[in-house]
């Protein structure tokens, strides 16, 4: 079993559309949407939800008005300015450190576990999908990422599926770090711009940190060829596997609007052959590096 994690650093490079395309080509996979902050993969796959689970993580302080002596100690202790002058905790600022709860002289602070979101196990036309929805303004997205990946792995083992294709979170922080442990390889989807290249450099350095192989794809390459070629040179120089260029095409957006992957949407032979070649190269390289 191999897990390919698809990342981008910056948003809007076409990461999710590409995950959909790879899924339509491979078929023998479990899909995992680890972009729990703003999950989008389900929009292409129209899943039927088979299981639904609450996700609890961390705690939040709640001050009980009936017990509070308004001594003000907690206001001084709290480093997150989460307690207002009227001794109410702002749940959006509380980081769940528990200092007020542990030390309150009147024992007036409750510290309940925090409902941070939900996760789902679903069936789709392109195979099983594990996905999640982080609560509005919730924390602990890293833990939820770890959880959906662990579930996807379990499903892949049970059903004997060879691949897990994981749609990763944007950025570089805790959810991305949580998406990398034990993965087989990372596909970085970037775009030809100054910011695309900058984010690629940072995300590839993070992947190096985990000693995982990075594969790089430049989407919308024809929007600015000089930047696209600069990205290729950067990959060659650093030893990242450069996979290829995809042209800019409105088909990706149109397919998305209709809830389809690009391969199901139109018969653009050029895009199709690029994608087929790309996935073939990617799967062979990963199989070679991780014989299972």
């Amino acid at each position: 079993m191999h897990e390919l994690v698809v990342l981008s650093g910056k948003g809007g490079t076409g990461k999710t559309s590409l995950v959909g395309a790879l899924a339509a080509l491979e078929r023998n996979q479990v899909l995992c949407d680890a972009d729990v902050d703003a999950a989008d993969l389900h929009l292409l796959l129209e899943p039927t939800i088979l299981e639904r689970h609450d996700f609890y993580a961390g705690h939040r302080a709640v001050i009980r008005e009936d017990r509070c002596l308004k001594c003000g100690d907690c206001l001084n202790w709290c480093r997150f300015q989460a307690i207002a002058e009227d001794f109410r905790v702002n749940p959006l600022l509380c980081e769940g450190c528990g200092v007020c709860w542990s030390l309150c002289p009147a024992d007036a602070v409750d510290f309940p576990e925090n409902l941070c979101g939900e996760w789902f196990f679903s069936e789709t036309r392109l195979g099983p999908l594990v996905h999640a929805c982080l609560g509005v303004a919730a924390e602990n997205s890293g833990k939820l990422v770890a959880l959906v990946r662990q579930e996807a792995r379990r499903v892949a083992e049970n059903q004997g599926r060879e691949w897990i294709i994981t749609d990763g979170p944007p950025g570089l922080g805790c959810p991305v770090i949580a998406s990398l442990g034990d993965a087989s390889a990372v596909l970085i989807v970037t775009e030809p711009s100054v910011s695309g290249q900058h984010d690629l450099e940072r995300i590839a350095a993070l992947v190096d940190h985990f000693r995982l192989p990075s594969f790089v794809l430049v989407n919308k390459a024809d929007l600015h060829w000089p930047s696209a070629r600069a990205i290729r040179r950067f990959c060659d120089l650093k030893g990242y596997n450069f996979l290829g260029y995809l042209p800019f095409t409105p088909s990706f957006t149109q397919a998305q609007v209709e809830g389809k992957t690009i391969l199901e949407y139109d018969n653009n032979e050029q895009i199709k052959s690029v994608l087929v070649g790309l996935w073939e190269k990617l799967r062979q390289e990963i199989q070679k590096q991780n014989p299972s």
């Binding site: 948003g11 999710t16 703003a38 303004a137 924390e139 997205s141 979170p169």
Partner: peptide
């Protein structure tokens, strides 16, 4: 501000006077 809706976004937005959401007319 960063993308998404979780803690880094809140840290960027809290205490501001107005929020502009930049979007596009697609399913995502």
């Amino acid at each position: 501000a960063p993308p998404g809706t979780s803690c880094p976004v809140l840290a960027a937005v809290l205490g501001s006077d107005m929020v502009i959401l930049v979007t596009e007319p697609t399913a995502f």
